[in-house]
């Protein structure tokens, strides 16, 4: 081994990659896709029993094209709905809401999903880049702590 480096991820994604990572993260944590209606969102905003927490994904930027402007994805599990979107500054954002949940519970759920989203985004980006460079993934495993381990080889003449 000649060196070891630790990198902090930066998420810069167009809508297709962003939504693919959201869906991969959500399904790995048992969330299912829901149709977020205008009425449901208005109810959540006005209701006194439905708490709501807004979070943002650090070091992120969602690149929009004209086809996907204002698009959002909502996923739900055990009465908690998380809506991923893009805030006014272009960062990836999450709105977590749930009836009868405390703000701390919602924040914890949102942060868990946000971390898993970043992990899935990084995994997809790495796999795509490795393939395009014709590097070969010879080993892949998910550890008990949910870390993903990859062993990648390539040959240089």
């Amino acid at each position: 081994m000649s060196c070891v480096c630790i990198l902090t991820p930066v998420v810069i994604a167009a809508w297709p990659a962003f939504s693919a990572a959201v869906m991969a993260a959500a399904s790995s944590l048992g969330y299912t896709l829901v149709e977020a209606t205008q009425e449901a969102e208005e109810f959540a905003l006005e209701s006194k029993t439905v708490n709501r927490v807004d979070l943002e994904v650090p070091q992120s930027e969602v690149v929009l094209d004209t086809l996907h402007r204002d698009q959002r994805i909502s996923v739900s599990r055990e009465g908690v709905t998380v809506t991923f979107g893009r805030d006014a500054r272009g960062k990836a954002s999450l709105c977590v809401s749930g009836e009868g949940c405390t703000e701390a519970e919602l924040r914890a759920r949102g942060e868990e999903l946000s971390r898993r989203f970043v992990q899935k985004y990084v995994y997809q980006r790495l796999m795509e880049e490795m393939r395009s460079r014709q590097f070969v993934v010879v080993e892949e495993e998910t550890c008990d702590n949910h870390a993903i381990r990859l062993k990648v080889r390539h040959w240089e003449s």
């Binding site: 971390r115 992990q119 790495l126 949910h146 993903i148 990859l150 062993k151 080889r153």
Partner: peptide
């Protein structure tokens, strides 16, 4: 390359 993607997305 041995790559570990942590649960928070950090990469070693």
């Amino acid at each position: 390359f041995e790559i570990t993607i942590g649960p928070d997305g950090s990469v070693e």
